[in-house]
Amino acid sequence: MALLTDRPAAAPARRDERAARTLATRFLGYATLVFFGLVFLYPFVIQIGNSLKTEADAAADPLSPFPDPLTLASFERVFAGTNFPLWLGNSLLVTVLVTIGRVFFDSLAGYALARLRFRGRNGLFAAVVAVLAVPGVVLLIPKFLVLNQLGIYNSYAGLVVPLLADAAGVFIMKQFFESIPVSVEEAARIDGASIFRTFWSVVLPMAKPALITLTILSFQSSWNEFPHSLVSVQDPDLFTLPRGLADLVSGSLGSGTQYPLKLGAALLATIPVAIIFVVFQRYFVRDANDGSDKG
């Protein structure tokens, strides 16, 4: 800034030219923003619009966001003609249990790895970092094998238990606990509080931002989780939303393409995450940036 004010006043002609250039830049910038805003949001607009159309209308004019005539028939069919309510219930159950499990277990482990001195700690942390690199898709057959062997294939236990902890969450919590000053805990410990008590009533309250991040992350990933449900259950009564949705798309629905129905069901499955995203945006953004350090 200092540089700018120290300079001698530019000749009027040059200033005009600069102003014109700034204006052009701005216009171009906004044009780009609006264009890509449309690219990224219009598919959702189309989704909403077409879920309220009749099938004939959706096929005739897929680009238009305005239903003509407007009908809730597809949503009625989602609830009455598919297992959607069941999938919704299963998804809620899985998401709540997995989120609670991850937040609790990941912070316990993260705290131990950050603060407690115990034999094997470094090795364990190295193992957590190694596990981070294991790609989920190569675990499809392995997971099925172990669930089958343990006798919990095709059960709620098989759907939930394997997801109750994740390496990424442990990593996030460890990094956070290392960043908060150790003095408060030491004071609590000198006052005679046990390790668990110190963790539970002194450290965790300080970790609120990280806990919120982890909660949102766990909610989002378990709500959207698809491959795991594919290899852990087979019984349609145990389908979660993404699984049911995939089944709806590939399965036989009777006649026609049924796009309004499919789009409506997909829309309903998206809404909870959309709400969380709008409310807790800054935590999402923070989380995505963290990827840059996870390596």
Binding site: F44, P62, Q220, R243
Partner: peptide, 28 residues
């Protein structure tokens, strides 16, 4: 920024359904 990021947080299955419609023969 939020608009550009939003697709990343949605369900891959739900979004695939939308794109099935977008790329349908008589799609958008």
């Amino acid at each position: 920024r939020s608009a550009f990021y939003f697709p990343s947080v949605t369900s891959s299955v739900a979004i695939s359904v939308v794109f099935l419609f977008l790329f349908a023969n008589s799609g958008a």
